[in-house]
Amino acid sequence: MRIVLQVVSRASVSVEGETVGEIAGPGLLALVGVTHGDTAETAVKLAGKVAGLRILPGETSCADAPAPVLVVSQFTLYGDVRKGRRPSWSRAAPGETSEPVVEAFVAALREHGLAVETGRFGAHMEVSLVNDGPVTLVVDSDELERPRRG
């Protein structure tokens, strides 16, 4: 899984002009991409990491505050632009694989006591946000598995 996290003072997601998810911050916008081999277990691990990251004002975490999270699925996080001018999406898991993983991530965040709003899986969405700081991080499940150097 790959998650782009942004600390926001507010964020919303709309589908066909209807707001389907909205938070007022401080909180997090989590753009979530799923690749082949990701599972609900991967989602649970990353949800714990996201809930505990001390990146909100005052070096607090969403779990400490508690602060809301807006989760938006985004398969384009696994776009490959190494060849040519048209991205390849082959590293992104198909919808029938990725939707349950995103749902497991949302459920795990809620188990940490967080208020979670979501977009609509597979829909064309318009995301609005005010990035606070700005603070933007990329959290990748591959990096949770590797030992640190130095």
Rank of each mutant, 00 (worst) to 15 (best):
P26L: 00
L114G: 00
A65Y: 14
A107I: 04
V127C: 09
A63W: 08
D38N: 15
L109G: 00
P68D: 03
G25P: 06
T39L: 04
A108W: 02
S88D: 13
G17S: 08
E126K: 15
A104K: 04
V32T: 04
S128D: 14
L109R: 00
I23S: 01
F105C: 02
T39N: 05
G25D: 04
F75Y: 11
I55A: 07
A47M: 05
L28R: 04
K45R: 15
P68A: 10
V72C: 02
H36I: 10
A67F: 02
A63I: 09
G58A: 09
G25A: 08
T76R: 11
V102M: 03
L70N: 02
V15L: 03
L53V: 09
R85Q: 15
A63N: 06
G52F: 07
S88A: 12
G25M: 05
M125L: 10
G122T: 11
A115F: 12
F121N: 06
A43K: 01
P87S: 11
V69L: 06
V116C: 02
V69H: 00
E117K: 12
E16K: 15
P94V: 14
L77F: 07
A104Y: 05
E41S: 11
G113P: 05
G21P: 00
T97D: 14
Q74W: 05
A40T: 08
T42Q: 10
V13D: 00
G48T: 08
H112P: 01
P66M: 05
S73W: 05
G27R: 00
V50E: 06
R91E: 14
G25S: 09
G58W: 03
K49Q: 10
F105T: 00
V44P: 06
L53T: 08
A108T: 03
D80L: 10
S90N: 14
T118Y: 07
V69Y: 00
S98K: 07
A24D: 15
D64G: 08
L77D: 04
V34L: 06
H112A: 09
V13P: 01
A115K: 12
W89D: 15
G84T: 09
A43C: 09
V106D: 02
E16V: 12
A30K: 01
Q74Y: 10
E126A: 13
P87T: 11
A43V: 07
R120A: 11
H36W: 14
G119C: 05
V71F: 03
S61Y: 00
S88M: 12
